[in-house]
Structure formats: structure tokens, C-alpha cells
Amino acid sequence: MRRVAVVVAACLAGLSGFAFAEEAAKPAAAAAAPPQLSADECAVWARELGFARALAEHDAAGFAAFLHPQAAFGAGRPQPTRGREAIAAEWAGLIAGKGLRLRWYPQRVTIGGVGDVAWSTGPALYQRLEPGAQPRYLIGQYQSVWHRDGDGVWRILFDDGIAPRPATEAEAMAFERGRREDCPRR
């Protein structure tokens, strides 16, 4: 899960013992047939990639701009983080990129029947940056719900995912190979 504050805090603190969910995320291997997405779904795909890029570029203002003002991160937790400012504050360490590098990309995007709600999911790769850190890589899966606001811009409304598990170097490389910038259009 790309938004698990406890795991992120543990990684940033350099703790060696992690508790991971028994449900392990699947490796980033691409499915046999890529999804065929609509133009609107591809717009969400592009927004998801832009959101990940804002984090990778340590752009706190850009990161916050992707969040709905009343977003809820860790939506499946008993106490999710609520609101753009609170989420941005919780993510400040990840955005700074000092102890942990997080990358993700979409593999699926689906628009709901009303046309202004979308769901996206894909793998998330954490890389601990401390020299000799073990495990070096963790892999999980994220799920986001996007809402197209009145201004026509897609923003994240809900976010959660599968807790990351230790990953091998080979799984980290498979994650990298699975990334695609181009949206698989219909």
C-alpha cells in the first residue's frame, strides 16, 4: 500500500523489523492483454502518472494539487488521514525523499457509471535509501478513487492499498519494466 503511514514511518526511521500483511502484492508483471481504456480513463491514467511524478520530483505543491480538498488517505483504516493539508503534511517526509523513495504507476483505470468517478490501481515500489538497508525494496499495490471536480480536473478522493512486502532485486526490476507512460486506448 503506497499510503500506509505506519510502514512509511518505520522505513523512514530505519527500523529493521516490519510487520507486513500476509496478503502479498502480486509482482509488477503485466497482464497478458492490456486493458482498453476510454479517453476519460486515459485522462485519469495521465493524472495518476503526474501524481507519481510530483512525488518523484519532490514537488510538495504539485503533490497537493492532485488531492481533493476533502480527500481521505488510508481509507480502509479506522482513522484515515482526511483533508488535503493533513495528507500533504503526513506525506512531507516521502515528498522530501530523504530516507525512502516511492514509485507507482497505473495498470488499470475504470470510470464509474456517473462519469465523474474513477478507480485506479497498480503496483507501488518502495526503496529504502540508507546504505545497507534490508530489505532494500518493498512492493505493494495501491488503489485510488478519483473525482472529476466542477472545474473538470480529476483529483484523488480516496486512497488505500495492500501493505508492502519485502521484494527482491528481480521484482524491483520487473516493476520498472512494467511501467508504461502510454495509456492503452480503445
Rank of each mutant, 00 (worst) to 15 (best):
A65E: 08
L100H: 08
Q36D: 01
R84G: 10
I111L: 15
A52L: 02
P35I: 04
L55D: 01
Q107F: 01
E22T: 13
A56E: 12
T81K: 08
A28I: 00
A24P: 04
V145N: 07
G97W: 11
Q134V: 05
P35W: 03
R77T: 11
R53Q: 15
G17W: 02
R82Q: 15
R136T: 04
A96M: 08
K98S: 13
R53P: 00
D149R: 12
G112T: 04
Y142G: 03
R53N: 06
E23Q: 13
A118C: 05
F73G: 08
V145A: 14
G74A: 10
I87W: 01
P123G: 06
R84T: 07
G115W: 12
R128I: 10
G93V: 04
L55F: 01
L15T: 15
D149P: 01
L102N: 01
A124N: 03
Q127L: 03
A43R: 07
H147A: 14
E22D: 11
L67C: 09
E48L: 05
E130K: 14
G74E: 11
A28Q: 00
A86M: 03
V117A: 09
G99F: 09
A72V: 02
L12F: 04
A13R: 15
R103V: 05
G112V: 00
D59S: 06
G76Q: 07
P131W: 06
P80T: 13
F63H: 09
G115Y: 07
A43M: 03
G76C: 02
G99M: 09
G93S: 05
G132E: 06
E57T: 15
V145R: 15
H58Q: 14
A61V: 06
Q70R: 15
E48K: 09
L125C: 10
E41I: 04
R128L: 03
D59N: 14
C42I: 02
V114R: 14
R148E: 04
A96S: 11
G14L: 05
A88C: 08
A124M: 05
Q141Y: 02
E90T: 12
A28D: 07
S38C: 10
A31R: 11
W91I: 13
E85W: 09
V44T: 02
A75D: 06
E85F: 13
A13H: 13
Q134I: 00
G17P: 00
A86K: 12
V145S: 08
P27Y: 01
V145C: 10
Q36Y: 00
A33W: 03
A54D: 14
I139C: 03
T121E: 15
Y142N: 03
A43D: 12
R136C: 10
Q143M: 05
